[in-house]
Design a protein around this nucleic acid. Structure first.
Lengths: 209, 209
DNA sequence: ATTTGATTAAAATACTTGTTTAAATCAAAA
DNA sequence: TTTTGATTTAAACAAGTATTTTAATCAAAT
């Protein structure tokens, strides 16, 4: 063998990282293979040498993106040793950390989800299935005991809407509120405490069937 | 002149509507001019006869989409004759109506906003400027009087996050919660009352600097 | 009936882009 | 040193696609 090995990070990983960056930011159709090669600092022929086609490379990136985005969600909700409040707080914090580092991921996910091939649908269930059943069981229990009246749908919609939407809508929010990048960061820091508090208020207040 | 006139809706409008449908759903790069022509039931040459290029056609659609999406926001907030609670309720209801009819619009807007050319930035200010100053003035007043501690940034983020995000994230929410299209509609109907109520709770509770 | 401008049809053109190929180069392993 | 496989270089190839062109056709206005 020679310098760039198959296993370690070198070349194959360079290609994947360049592809991830461009695919995630611009989508499949708007990304050219030549751009990926240039971004990776490698030759175009290498793309087809390592991955057979643009489509195959994209599929790999897409699956990894899905796993990364949905994985976090599941991990925290599955932990039965924590109170619901604590779990919410951890999920919110984990997502704010995560999205600060990878701000383009959610929009990518939402775009891909719209095309909705069954391949993706299965992936979602696979990644989010266990946590979902656990969460729903507890929410429905709490509802029976009168602790909360918040339907699981609204719960998830509110949690994701309040936590990940600000990142998706960052350009819009910054324009509307005249917030600098630094101010945006500060607002997101505030949200680490505010969102769990708001969710708590919603769960106590009345909230749909 | 002949059958299809320039002024009335006929041909030019057919092209624009076909283009709007495809551009809004699939984006610029993934939309082919041939598809637009076919969708409009017209000859391909007509596209370049009426609009000079795919890009020019796209720009027109994009601007109209922006105006439509942001215009509603402004219209209701500018009305000083209403209480804040009433305005919130109207904006939420107007957006739920609007997004039920045009569910692909917000994702289109968010995608375009990411590329952020100054052309778009100006458009946002133009459409949303007046309502913004009006809204911010009142929110800051209310804050002084101790009526609310909710920062304008969080107010907008929450309002949009709770109202438009569910439509953007519909495929994700439906998968995670196993909700049918019919159930989704029902949840959105519930939100017409729930979201204004939640926003009200947030404005009374403590909320950021 | 003639004219006029919209519309179609069919192709040609030009450019972009995904993919492949063939021959060199180069670094390490044998 | 020889060999081996990764990497480069430079093209070529094959589709796909935006755009243009040219010559018909067609419906209404004159």
């Amino acid at each position: 063998m020679a310098k760039g090995k198959t296993k370690d990070g070198s070349t194959e990983e360079k290609i994947k990282e360049a592809a991830r960056k461009l695919f995630t930011k611009k989508g499949f159709a708007a990304t050219r293979t030549r751009d990926i090669a240039e971004e990776a600092g490698l030759n175009l022929a290498l793309l087809n040498y390592y991955f057979r086609s643009k489509q195959k490379l994209f599929d790999i990136i897409m699956m990894e993106n899905f796993r990364q985005f949905l994985g976090g969600m599941s991990a925290y909700f599955a932990d039965e040793s924590l109170t619901m409040e604590e779990r919410i707080s951890r999920v919110v914090n984990a997502y704010i950390d995560f999205l600060t580092e990878f701000p383009d991921l959610p929009l990518f996910i939402l775009n891909e989800l719209r095309g909705n091939p069954s391949k993706i649908a299965m992936k979602v269930n696979e990644e989010v299935g266990p946590a979902r059943s656990q969460l729903f069981k507890e929410l429905l229990n709490a509802k029976k005991e009168g602790k909360t009246a918040l339907d699981p749908f609204h719960f998830v919609a509110n949690l994701v809407g309040l936590t990940v939407f600000p990142f998706v809508g960052k350009p819009l929010l910054q324009r509307v509120t005249n917030a600098s990048d630094e101010q945006f960061r500060a607002y997101m820091e505030e949200r680490r405490k505010l969102v769990p508090m708001w969710i708590g208020m919603m769960m106590k207040g009345s909230g749909g069937s």
